[in-house]
Design a protein around this nucleic acid. Structure first.
Length: 828
DNA sequence: AGCACGCCGACT
DNA sequence: GTCGGCGTGCTC
């Protein structure tokens, strides 16, 4: 380098800033610095984590106006955490979803890697304050944390940060420091996740162990032989010390001696925590493919070999063997020395697919999902980053997996709502999969038995290539579906029933035959709500104004949105009556009632309440597989991905539960749900049967689900979308306002909508819908309003949205938080 | 986010 | 008059 000026770095800081910042670093410190490493950078009087995006030799023009370019404080990584070619993807995501880029990167990376500066209070040994005296005084009452300080002699970083935030607390601390009573230690909050290492042993001369043995003690001989045997079996790699000691207790001492004699040496090696927990079941490769599978593979594989971006929609009925197509495509991709990313909608779901991939590709598979501990997540991430794992299976956030060169991205069950993140960065992982593939010249396979209307629309219009598998493996017929009208099923006092006579009779028959049944309900908890039988009011959450759900296990009423909990032994909050009871139904109530109706049946329940632990979930599924369960009862969770050969009956308790939701996709969702549950019935040699209970037997979604008629459902839905110009005929942005003052929020919502209306008149292409109170009008103590922007494409909407927000900011936005949801899926 | 700066009410 | 509350704007 001719000039010795500093190197400038473009850094995305992990705070809500919508642009990147420029820092400097001395040339000698920049040696080997690559984009993708974390940096510690000064920002407004503190230190925060930043991600290095780019290096440049001279000051970029956009930073010319900056008063002082600060030098980075530290380089936190020796190796990058993500490949450089992901950076354009991060930039795109930040732009498209209108989210700060540093936050985008932070959420893409494994949790626990963000460092920032903090403070800790330590009481001095000398010159102690008269604490006991102070505690009894006014000061003591004002600062309850003084008690902790007296007992422990220090405060944790978290506690200190709380004290520091209040001016009074800060002032007190500063004063005490001047008195010499305490020290305020400025330190970095340690990153919570680190690589785990273990000590491994390797022999210095592996091939001639016997030569040395004569001069060694028996224990040393034995240890050396054991080491050489294991080492050869492991392909010459070093062996964990603990494994040797486990195999031969005398190895501990012998190893020390052997090291002194220079016959072995120790090394520290990074180990990966095993995320699989229980090993997934083994699946053999099928001998042959069906004609339709063959056809799909023949179209996908050449596309993968071409190494150009292309998207396939694989529409295959349940049980048609889509997984085998994924596996063949994955094998082809690996042959090209490229890697594979497989997205699945939920953690629980991964097991089945994971089993197939592990059976076929062994330890080249890495798993990424929220069920992993922070350490496991980090380990998997690093296995992917180093290229040790070339196949990644993961939930939503795995779309950011640090694969250098993905050649294939599979999105299984692409219609699933779980691909949309509904908090913070509101991204659609399926859409991002396609975007990432387009940037990295990869092939995408979107797989589903019930594709989203939008994806299918793109497929028949040539944007994607449509692959259809209409027949199930071995020509197994689809289950017969019957619909039961719940309106005609009431018990003696006119109350609705949970189990119609038809469903009960079928359950009984199945029990007699020794076959398994599945009962599906789209609800959680014991009951929907508590109803006062005197005044007719329900018990609602005081924060969210929605009905509380009764959990009999805990004897508690629970708000499923904010977690507010109340004892279930309540009086009516409106009229103080004690004549109050549960109404509606959830899985717990179903379980209880079913237990009474069919006392001889072995019943198991799976829903999010029982599924917090993945281990428990796997154990229940195993019980079902081993036929130690007659009836499996559950929510969404049980609707997909599993394969139970003896499950021949599926009952859907209340099929139209979702039809009333304020959502233009409600019809599509209901159909998908029914079709997915029905697909669980009769997947092996036994024929399957489905019974749908509903209050709307004539609704087209229910009727078309009965006849497994996806094409017709699509036609009906696309027709109505066209009429009202909803996606895919337009794009949407939902703007949410929330704040503690209901009037301020409502006024701003109206003000912004009026403003948007005025802007519309100049730009005819955008429509404004609303404002309306959000369906959850009050959540976590905050009032919420929203309005929709509808336009021909996202670019137009972005531009419109930016103008609207900047105009609104000029007028003033006070005490209201505005968040933007691009391509909203749920209007909650 | 979280820090500095700046503007208003309640105290010495 | 100052102290301390919180609201606004900027961070390289």
């Amino acid at each position: 380098l001719t000039n010795a000026g500093p190197i400038y770095l473009e850094v995305a800081v992990a705070v809500p800033l919508d642009h990147t910042l420029i820092y400097s670093i001395a040339v000698d410190k920049a040696v080997g610095l690559t984009p993708g490493v974390r940096l510690l950078v000064p920002l407004a009087g503190r230190f925060v984590t930043g991600y290095l995006l780019a290096l440049c030799g001279e000051l970029p023009p956009e930073a010319a106006s900056v008063r002082t370019i600060k030098p980075v404080a530290d380089v936190l990584d020796a190796f990058p955490l993500f490949p450089e070619n992901l950076i354009p993807v991060f930039r795109w995501v930040a732009q498209y979803y209108q989210h700060p880029i540093g936050e985008v990167i932070r959420m893409a990376l494994p949790a626990g890697l963000t460092v920032k500066s903090g403070r800790r209070i330590i009481l001095s040994k000398a010159g102690r304050p008269p604490l006991a005296e102070i505690l009894a005084s006014e000061t003591g009452k004002a600062f309850p944390w003084l008690q902790v300080l007296l007992e422990k002699n220090m405060l944790t970083a978290a506690a200190t940060s709380r004290v520091w935030r209040s001016q009074k607390g800060r002032r007190l601390l500063e004063q005490w420091r001047q008195n010499g009573w305490l020290t305020i230690k400025e330190e970095l909050s340690a990153a919570t996740v680190k690589a785990r290492t273990e000590i491994c042993v390797a022999a210095s001369h592996l091939d001639c162990v016997d030569e040395f043995c004569d001069e060694l003690k028996p224990s040393e001989q034995k240890t050396l032989r054991l080491l050489s045997r294991l080492s050869i079996a492991g392909g010459g790699s070093s062996i964990p010390r603990k494994d040797l000691i486990k195999a031969y207790a005398g190895a501990r001492k012998a190893l020390k001696n052997l090291e002194k004699k220079r016959l072995i040496f120790f090394e520290e090696r990074q180990v990966y925590r095993d995320p699989f927990g229980e090993r997934p079941p083994f699946f053999a490769q099928p001998e042959r493919l069906t004609a339709e599978q063959e056809d799909a593979v023949k179209q996908v594989n050449p596309a993968i070999s071409r190494k150009k971006f292309s998207t396939f929609l694989l529409h295959g009925v349940t049980g048609s063997g889509k997984t085998e197509v994924y596996l063949r495509a994955a094998a082809t991709t690996l042959e090209q020395s490229r890697s594979v990313l497989v997205l699945v909608p939920e953690i629980a779901l991964a097991t089945q697919l994971e089993g197939h991939f592990v059976s076929r590709f062994g330890d080249r598979v890495a798993l990424l999902h929220s069920g992993l501990s922070a350490g496991e997540h980090y380990d998997q991430w690093m296995r992917i980053m180093t290229g040790e794992a070339s196949i990644v299976i993961g939930a939503r956030s795995a779309v950011f997996a640090p694969l250098r060169d993905p050649g294939l991205i599979v999105v299984d069950e692409e219609h699933e709502g779980a691909y949309k993140q509904e908090e913070g960065l509101r991204y659609q992982a399926r859409d991002l999969a396609i975007l990432r593939a387009s940037r990295q010249n990869a092939t995408v396979i979107l797989g589903s038995a019930t594709p989203s209307v939008t994806s299918y629309f793109h497929a028949i219009n040539g944007k994607y290539q449509l692959l259809t598998i209409g027949r199930r493996i071995n020509e197994r017929p689809l289950p017969t579906v019957s619909v039961v009208d719940l309106r005609k099923n009431k018990n003696a006092d006119g109350a609705p029933v949970l189990f119609s006579n038809e469903l009960l009779a079928a359950l009984n028959e199945n029990l007699d035959r020794g076959e398994q049944s599945l009962i599906f309900l789209n609800r959680r908890g014991y009951a929907d709500f508590m109803l006062c039988r005197d005044c007719g009011q329900t018990v609602q959450c005081r924060n969210c104004q929605i009905s509380l759900t009764l959990h009999k296990d805990r004897g508690a009423l629970l708000c499923h949105y904010c977690g507010y909990t109340l004892s279930s032994a309540v009086l009516c909050p409106h009229c103080r009556s004690s004549n109050i009871g549960a109404i509606g139904f959830g899985t717990e109530r179903l379980e209880a009632e079913l237990g009474e109706l069919l006392p001889q049946a072995r019943i198991a329940r799976l829903d999010r309440d029982t599924c917090v632990k993945r281990k428990h979930y796997l154990a229940v599924l195993n019980k079902v597989r081993q036929r130690r369960v007659d009836i499996l009862l559950g929510t969404q969770m049980i609707t997909k991905g599993h394969h139970f050969p003896h499950m021949t009956l599926v009952g859907i308790v209340w099929a139209d539960a979702g039809l009333g939701l304020p959502d233009f996709r409600a019809g599509e969702r209901t159909f998908q749900l029914i079709a997915q549950v029905a697909g669980r019935a009769g997947r092996e040699t036994l024929p399957g049967r489905v019974i749908i209970q509903t209050y709307h037997p004539d609704h087209y979604c229910i009727d078309l689900a009965r006849t497994h008629d996806y094409k017709n459902l699509f036609e009906k839905e696309i027709q109505s979308r066209r009429e009202v110009a909803f996606p895919p005929f337009s794009r949407l942005i939902n703007i949410r306002l929330e704040g503690e003052d209901p009037d301020k929020v409502r006024n701003l919502a109206h003000g912004m909508t009026t403003l948007a209306g005025k802007l519309c008149r100049t730009r005819r292409t955008v429509d404004v819908l609303g404002p309306a109170p959000a369906p959850l009008a009050k959540l976590r103590g905050r009032y919420r309003w929203q309005f929709l922007l509808k336009g021909p494409d996202v670019e137009t909407l972005h531009a419109f949205c930016n103008r609207l927000l900047s105009k609104a900011r000029q007028t003033g936005i006070k005490a209201v938080r505005i968040s933007v949801d691009v391509d909203p899926e749920h209007m909650m």
